[in-house]
Design a protein around this nucleic acid. Sequence first.
DNA 1: TACGTATATTTACCTTGTATTCTTACGCCA
DNA 2: TGGCGTAAGAATACAAGGTAAATATACGTA
Lengths: 226, 226
Amino acid sequence: MKDLQGVTLNRTRKPRRGPGRPAAGESLTPQDVARGALNLIAAEGEQALTMRRLGEVLGVKAMALYNHYPDKEAILDAVAGLALARLPMPPAKGPWKSRIKSVCRGIRRMAMEHPNLFRVAMTRPTPPSTGMPQIESAFSALADAGLAPAAQAVAYHTLRLYVRAYCLWEIDELNRGGDLAEPARVPVLDPHHTAAVNHHLKSNPDRLFEAGLDLILRGLRAGEKV
Amino acid sequence: MKDLQGVTLNRTRKPRRGPGRPAAGESLTPQDVARGALNLIAAEGEQALTMRRLGEVLGVKAMALYNHYPDKEAILDAVAGLALARLPMPPAKGPWKSRIKSVCRGIRRMAMEHPNLFRVAMTRPTPPSTGMPQIESAFSALADAGLAPAAQAVAYHTLRLYVRAYCLWEIDELNRGGDLAEPARVPVLDPHHTAAVNHHLKSNPDRLFEAGLDLILRGLRAGEKV
DNA sequence: TACGTATATTTACCTTGTATTCTTACGCCA
DNA sequence: TGGCGTAAGAATACAAGGTAAATATACGTA
């Protein structure tokens, strides 16, 4: 079991000597709680995160967690923040299309490596305010593309929706069948061709993502009005 | 309170005369249950759908619902099926871009008219198998666009992700602030320009959706390889 | 040394999904 | 006509989970 955040999952904390004594330095911090929750979610999914279970993992009773966060939602928000902070920093130089692709691929890599975590981070009702400085800075590439400001905004928004939606979809598909199933069945195709298309797209698990990304990037043209 | 499915929300069912008597014809059907759930969700959101509440709405005890569906998930699946069946049928004729836009706008219209319902229908863990014949048939327009089969599949998939993600995002935004907030903040823009861009995009609530749609459609070119 | 504060425990409550069991009315068939 | 199987519902109960309230314990500080 990977230990993503330096807090172990199984109650290997020093044994506490009775009720309510944080013996000098081994008291829980909000960071500890968030990291423990992150590990639990990464390992077993969001539904495994219950207050009782998290307390158990941290060597503490459920109610003790309320000393550090007002409620469970706040813990989930903190987990989302931690997760997003791990996104890789994109290159600051290079052709703008490459830079955008690099960011998008970094997001997808995290989705594939820690799907449970990614899902939680991307589906919080209010996205974390510490939101993705990496991404935001990287999308300065859109300015380099020669797009008018409004077109930059549209492109940013559309790309963000695409990458997020694609990754969540892919996670669901992998959870469902272990393999991508009918990524984009086109109804009117005859079955023979449909099979060929699906095989082509599934032969490389990156191909569908990249193709959608290219499709959107292809629509970006300098000076286009919105 | 709108009555979307012909089953009233408040227990105006004929009063039952005691425990366990479906007096000739007034017995509950699975359809009744699904319609009741749909109305409840449309009016008050998914979190309002509890077995006890639904039973109350239908004039019955919670456990009676298990005579018609194996569990709550099955009821939600049925609701999703009902909701998707209401999607408008797109025109069969016209330029392919217009036809695609027509389908996408129809989906968005439903999202705006019945956001709670739309959210439930679009976020079922396994999408309903009765899935959107309207959409699928309409996307035959992609063949008319002169796209190679694999490119059709990519376009179909990308458009589907975009429309779904946009509508879910828009619902969240409207729930959050009553108005679209920072639809697509581009970080590197200076604040003055950012404000101008946001104003421009928000001045017409359809503009951002249409612009993203156009962006994707612009990338579709006959014969493009994948 | 006494006390306030931070942290943890204990206990308990409420909501929600659902299993189990019992009840009642209806329609079929001898 | 009368008994009975069956379908639909009610009553009861339980377990899981979030969290409120009261209580306890150590530590730092005055």
